[in-house]
């Protein structure tokens, strides 16, 4: 298996290696990195390039590990029993498979994305240890043992809101997606906006990296924000000149700066540099 950059996704070499190792050794791959560096997108692109289905399990603060395995719908069963339905005699009719179950029983080897695992309760990863290790679990209600036909390719993303337990980490491969350098970023932009002019792109990237380098900035703009910003620049037909000569805030700053204080900070700095030039 060789996973590499596609027509709409650029993969760094070390990330490609990480994916390859995780797929070959059938280990879950844990991805961390700044928001907007393409962690979730990786799973989508991986599934697309392998031509297998993608199962996405979006984690929320109320998510329980059990929901990924299965849920028992007691209420419908009780209601069916009132209506005298025949279904009621078989408890299996009321077991709803969760994402892990679906991944384990899929006919081909799927990609399972466990998105933003850090959003869940602090015990959540511990509850999944055995299931991810053995790729099997027991259904208490029916006494069934569900084990994976093919071990799914598991991709887990985290934004570092909570730290994950050691025991869980030991079972994963870990890759930290570094923020791309200017050159890689230019490639990424090229994939999204192939028609952008060379010099506009260069100036825009300069502005973008300047903003990222500002000390004390609350929310650093990321790749996805850059791409949105460039889209706006293209739509509004803003030329290199406008971009270079914009005193104060850059045009369409709303796409890059998502925090009121950051906007003020950039404005203040621009004001100061203008004064210095005079």
């Amino acid at each position: 298996m060789q996973f590499s950059s596609t027509s709409n996704y650029i993969v760094a070499d070390e990330l490609a290696l990480a994916v390859q190792a995780a797929v070959t050794l059938e280990k879950p791959l844990l991805l961390k990195g700044e928001p907007g560096t393409g962690k979730t997108k990786l799973a989508e692109e991986l599934a697309a390039s392998l031509e297998v289905p993608l199962l996405r399990w979006q984690i929320k603060s109320t998510s329980k590990a059990q929901q990924g395995l299965y849920e028992y719908d007691a209420v419908s069963r009780l209601r069916d029993s009132q209506l005298g339905s025949d279904k009621v005699h078989d408890i299996a009719n009321y077991i709803k498979p969760g994402k892990l179950w679906q991944a384990f029983t899929a006919s081909e080897r799927p990609v399972l994305l466990i998105d933003e695992i850090d959003k869940a309760d602090i015990e959540f990863p511990n509850d999944l240890l055995h299931e991810l290790d053995q790729m099997a679990f027991h259904v208490y209600e029916t006494g069934e043992q569900i084990s994976a036909k093919h071990r799914p390719i598991v991709v887990i993303t985290s934004n570092n809101e909570k730290e994950l337990p050691d025991a869980f980490l030991r079972r994963c491969f870990f890759h930290y997606i570094n923020f791309p350098d200017a050159e890689t970023l230019a490639k990424i932009v090229d994939v999204h906006h192939p028609t952008i002019q060379r010099d506009l792109l260069e100036t825009a990237l300069e502005v973008f990296f300047d903003v990222r380098k500002l000390p004390n900035i609350k929310k650093k703009p990321s790749t996805s924000e850059l791409i949105d910003w460039l889209k706006l620049l293209l739509v509004e037909d803003i030329g290199v000149k406008d971009l270079k000569e914009s005193n104060g805030l850059m045009p369409m700053f709303g796409a890059l700066l998502k925090n009121e204080q950051d906007v003020q900070l950039v404005e203040k700095l621009a004001f100061m540099s203008r004064r210095r030039e005079r």
């Binding site: 070390e14 290696l17 990480a18 190792a21 050691d166 980490l169 030991r170 491969f173 870990f174 890759h175």
Partner: peptide, 9 residues
């Protein structure tokens, strides 16, 4: 990269 991937979490 491989060693970092597997050994450091």
């Amino acid at each position: 990269y491989l060693a970092r991937l597997t050994l450091v979490k």
